[in-house]
Structure formats: structure tokens, C-alpha cells
């Protein structure tokens, strides 16, 4: 129950395997600034796990982010993420610093970690939010899609901290960072009684997902089953190249082996929000829509005028991809 004791926002700063701060952290930070000011200017803090001394490399970048405090857990063991160690140490930290809001990126790591922490803290967690706001009572109003995206629900939490996860790409990064005297705190901890029985044997990069170009693309052209075969996707790639776009795909196209799963867009793929999204041969199933509806402008090319994609496309072009795109490339080639 609200007790006035909890204050401030805590953000989990996930590191990638290459020791970069994950982009979702910056997105959460930006949102937190908005939330913090609605709460009357509360503190924004971060928690990070690194191998020893790495934090010195981050000091400078953290210094310019407008954070109040960064809690750093350092250990050689933290080279790899561990559900057991990270969750137990974060639970202790949260019990000590008592934030009112705790945000975690909904990466595969974040989705593994967050429910583990929230259960141990006996507090609530709202997964995969697409909107975060402060309501009139000063509580976190977390909005998320459910039922495959058909229904939106705004969820409140009766306990502290109010926890939420947000997928990468859902929030934008806009703000120019204000310099702040960020304090770096190295909490005392012990591993006593803790044991991680999960042993990592090996790891294989899926090469194209280390830096996924879809995250920063300004134009995305995405293909679906309407492209029919490899030739269709080859045509899509030519089209993408001619306008400097990045290629995406529907799950159906991925399952048909026409595109790698790293470029799947939608509920079980990536969330994107480019300036321009061109959907080619895509029917517009709700599970696809939830991953791209925040694009600024959507063009759809589909030869079925009743395709649901036309309900959300700003510019719906009823027509055959195999006629329009070759013609477009031909005109450009002149």
C-alpha cells in the first residue's frame, strides 16, 4: 500500500555481451525523466552489473545522462548474466533504497529477471508496456496490449516498487542530457548461501542480431506472404536498397523460410517505429500490427482491397507488388 516511504525511479541498466549499455536503457531513462517531473522531481537512479573496473569506462557516459545515482555491482562472475545472482542482489538493493518505480527493459534478459525480482519483493509487475504515465493519485499507470494486441489494458499496482518492463523500440530517445553530479555507489554484498546451478556451456551469436538495423532504421520495407517466394524477397531487397531502407518481414514469411527470424516484426518479433514503414504483401494480422503501428507513416501495397492492413495504413495502395515495384525501380533507373 502507498506508504510515502518509497521514492524515486530505479532503472536496470542492462549490458550487452559486448559491454555496451543496451539501447532500451536510454529509452527508459528518457521516459523516466518525464515520470520523475510529474512526480515533482524525484531521483532517477540506475543499477548495473559489470566485471571489475569496467565501470570506469562507463563513468563518463553515465555522468552526462542526468542520473542521480548509479549502483554498481562488480564481480568477475558478472561477465555473464545470472538469474540467481542478479535477482538476489537487486532484491536486497531495492529493499534498502526503496524506489517507488522500478523499470526494466523487456529484452530476453529483462523478462527473465523482472518476474523473479517482483515475486521475491511481493510486488506487482506489468510486462511489455507500451505506455507509462503518472495518474492523478501519483501512481504508475502502465498500459499494455493483451489478447494478441486486440485489447489495451491500463494496469495499476497496489504495492511498492511499482514494476514494469518495456520492450526496446517502444519509447523514443529525445532529450538532450543535462549534466549532473552522478554519484557512483558500490554496495556491499556477499554471495553467502547463493549458488547458481545454471552453467553456461557455450554461446553462439546470431550474427545479424548484434546490431539490429531495424532499431535505428528511418525507413523499413517489410514483406509478407504476398511476396510468395525468394524472387519476391529479392525484389523487396532491391526496392529497399533503392530508397535506403532496411528490410523486415512477417512471421509467416519467416516461417516459410523467406527471411531470417531476426528481422521478424510483431508481437513475437521486433517492435519498430521508423518514419516510414512500407508493408508489401502483408495482410495486417493484429500480431504484426502491434510491432509497427507506431511508425510515423505507413504505406501498404496489397492486391486485396479488403486486407486489414488498409485499416491502419496512412497510404493504402491497392495493387500487385509484382507490377508496382518493378515499375518503380524501372522509373528510378532512368
Amino acid at each position: 500500500m502507498p506508504n510515502g516511504e518509497n521514492s524515486g525511479i530505479l532503472i536496470y541498466a542492462q549490458l550487452t555481451r559486448e559491454n555496451y549499455i543496451h539501447t532500451v536503457f536510454f529509452e527508459l531513462l528518457d521516459k523516466s525523466k518525464e515520470l520523475a517531473s510529474k512526480l515533482g522531481g524525484v531521483e532517477i537512479n540506475a543499477v548495473i552489473f559489470t566485471t571489475p573496473n569496467l565501470i570506469n569506462e562507463f563513468r563518463e557516459s553515465f555522468q552526462n545522462m542526468g542520473l542521480d545515482k548509479v549502483y554498481c555491482f562488480e564481480n568477475d562472475l558478472f561477465k555473464n548474466y545470472s538469474t540467481e545472482y542478479y535477482s538476489k542482489l537487486i532484491v536486497n538493493l531495492v529493499n534498502y533504497i526503496k524506489p517507488e518505480i522500478f523499470l526494466i527493459g523487456a529484452t530476453t534478459q529483462g523478462r527473465d529477471l523482472a518476474p523473479r525480482i517482483s515475486s521475491a519483493l511481493h510486488t506487482g509487475l506489468t510486462a511489455d508496456c507500451t505506455g507509462l504515465d503518472i495518474n492523478e493519485k501519483g501512481l504508475l499507470a502502465a498500459t499494455r496490449p493483451t489478447f494478441g494486441g486486440e485489447l489495451m489494458a491500463t494496469i495499476l499496482c497496489k504495492t511498492y516498487p511499482q514494476m514494469a518492463t518495456v520492450r526496446p523500440g517502444v519509447f523514443r530517445v529525445n532529450s538532450v542530457y543535462d549534466k549532473k553530479d552522478t554519484e557512483f555507489i558500490f554496495p556491499q554484498y556477499s554471495f553467502e548461501g547463493l549458488e547458481d546451478r545454471v552453467k553456461i556451456l557455450d554461446f553462439r551469436n546470431s550474427v545479424d542480431s548484434i546490431i539490429n538495423e531495424l532499431d535505428s532504421a528511418e525507413i523499413i520495407v517489410a514483406g509478407g506472404m504476398g511476396l510468395k517466394n525468394e524472387q519476391g524477397f529479392a525484389l523487396l531487397k532491391d526496392f529497399a536498397k533503392s530508397i535506403g531502407a532496411t528490410v523486415g518481414a512477417t512471421r509467416a514469411a519467416v516461417e516459410a523460410g523467406l527471411a531470417p527470424s531476426s528481422i521478424q516484426i510483431g508481437q513475437t518479433g521486433k517492435t519498430v517505429r521508423p518514419k516510414l514503414y512500407i508493408a508489401c504483401g502483408i495482410s495486417g494480422a493484429i500480431q504484426h500490427i502491434v510491432g509497427m503501428e507506431n511508425s510515423e507513416h505507413i504505406i501498404a501495397i496489397n492486391n486485396d482491397k479488403n486486407a486489414p492492413i488498409f485499416e491502419i495504413a496512412d497510404t493504402g495502395i491497392v495493387g500487385d507488388f509484382f507490377e508496382i515495384i518493378p515499375k518503380y525501380l524501372e522509373t528510378k533507373g532512368e
Binding site: L151, M152, T154, I289, V290, I312, G316, V318
Partner: peptide, 15 residues
């Protein structure tokens, strides 16, 4: 606290 239908804010125009 509230559940609502997900309605798009794109102004669908079909040609």
C-alpha cells in the same frame, strides 16, 4: 484500472 480496444491513430486512406 481500464481496458479499451486498440484503435489506430493512422488516417487510413485507400487508393
Amino acid at each position: 484500472s481500464k481496458a479499451f480496444r486498440n484503435i489506430s491513430n493512422h488516417n487510413a486512406q485507400k487508393y
